[in-house]
Design a protein around this nucleic acid. Structure first.
Lengths: 175, 175
DNA sequence: CAGCTTCGGTTCGGTCATTGAACCAACGTG
DNA sequence: CACGTTGGTTCAATGACCGAACCGAAGCTG
C-alpha cells in the first residue's frame, strides 16, 4: 500500500492482499486486464485515471507478478500488459465484489457474467446453476445488460457492448 | 471513495463496491467486525489505525448500512458497532481475498477458516469439502495457525488465540 | 470529593498520494 | 518535414492520511 506505513501490524492474509491490490484504482486495472484490456491507452481512456497513477499501478502490478509486460511489436517498440495466473486468481474476489456492489447499491443490472457453454448466469459462488460446476474464468462471458449507457468516445466501452469472453484480448476498433 | 472524484465514469458494480469499501482500512474494519470486534477501542488497538481515520470509517460504514451503531449501556453512554446483513454479505469477497493473499504472498499459514460442525478447512469457494455444502458465515470458525506471533498488548489478538466462531462478539479480557 | 483512569471521540500541523495538465520521445504517415 | 499515435515523465496543487495532543463524560480510588 505504501502509504506512510503499510498494514505491518496485521497478521492477516487479507491485509497482505490489500497491501498489494488495495490502493486506489488497482483492482479496477486488474478487472480491465481480465476483461481483455492490454494496452496503456485503453486502460487510460476506459478508467479515466491520471497517467502518472496508471504508470505506477502497471509498474507495481508487473513487479508483483499480476501482470506480464511483453513486447508485441518492435518498431515502434510497443508493450502490452497481460494478466498472469496470479492476476486471474483474483477473479473470485472481483466477482464477489461485483455481486455485492450490484445487490446492495444498484438498481439496474449493468452487466452479467454467464457460462459460455450454456449462457446461464453465474451463481453467487461462481458456479453455473445449470451445469452444476464451478466455471473457470476462461469460460465466462461478460454480457451487457439493460442499464448500460456507454461513453461513445471510449473504445473499450464500445467493444464491451457485444458479449465478450473473459481473458481474450479486446478487439478495439478505431474511431 | 471521495478522493477528488469517485469512479463516476465506471459503469461497473466492482467500481460501485469499491467506492463504498475501497478506501484504506475500510475492508479491515469490516473484517474485524465479522470477527466479532465491536468496540471503538478494540478496533483502534487491533488495527493500529489513526483515531480520526477510524472515526471516519465507522461513520461512513454506519451510513452505508454495513455496520449498526447501537447503545449497549447508558451510564456511561457506550456504543458498539455491529455488522449488519449487508456487511456480512462482504464475507465471500473477504474470504476470496484472504485465500489469494495467503496462496500468493505468505509462507506460513496464519489462520484458517473451518466448518464449525466438522472442523474441516473451507475450500476455495467457501464450501466444506467434507459436508459438500456452502458454509454460512455463522458456522465458520477462525482457527489460529502455526505462523502466528500475536502482540501481547492487543486484547483482540489475544482473544483470537483460541478458536473463534465468526460474528459472535469477542470476549475481551482486561490486561 | 479530588484526582486518576477509561472510553470514545475531535482538532491540528505535517507528510504523502493523487490529480490534471503540460511536456517529451520514438516512430510512422502523408 | 509537419503531424498523429503511443507510452510514457514531470510538476504544482489538492486533499487524504498520519501521529500526537486535547477533550468531555463517567466511573473508581483513597
Amino acid at each position: 500500500m505504501a502509504l506512510g506505513k503499510d498494514y505491518a501490524t496485521q497478521e492477516c492474509s487479507i491485509a497482505r492482499a490489500l497491501e498489494v491490490v488495495g490502493e486506489r484504482w488497482t483492482l479496477l486495472v486488474v478487472r480491465d486486464a481480465i476483461y481483455g484490456v492490454r494496452r496503456y491507452n485503453d486502460f487510460l481512456v476506459h478508467l479515466g485515471i491520471p497517467r502518472a497513477v496508471l504508470s505506477a499501478r502497471l509498474k507495481t502490478l508487473t513487479e508483483e507478478g499480476i501482470l506480464d509486460k511483453r513486447r508485441y511489436q518492435e518498431a515502434p517498440p510497443r508493450d502490452e500488459y497481460v494478466v498472469t495466473a496470479r492476476g486471474i486468481a483474483l477473479w473470485p474476489a472481483l466477482r464477489a465484489l461485483a455481486l455485492w456492489g450490484r445487490e446492495n447499491f444498484q438498481e439496474t443490472q449493468l452487466r452479467s457474467f454467464r457460462h459460455a457453454d450454456c449462457g446461464t448466469e453465474l451463481g453467487p459462488y461462481g458456479e453455473c446453476p445449470a451445469c452444476g460446476t464451478v466455471v473457470p474464468v476462461a469460460d465466462v462471458v461478460l454480457v451487457p445488460g439493460p442499464g448500460l449507457d456507454p461513453d461513445p468516445a471510449d473504445p473499450v466501452s464500445r467493444a464491451l457492448l457485444k458479449p465478450k469472453r473473459l481473458l481474450e484480448p479486446l478487439e478495439i476498433d478505431p474511431v
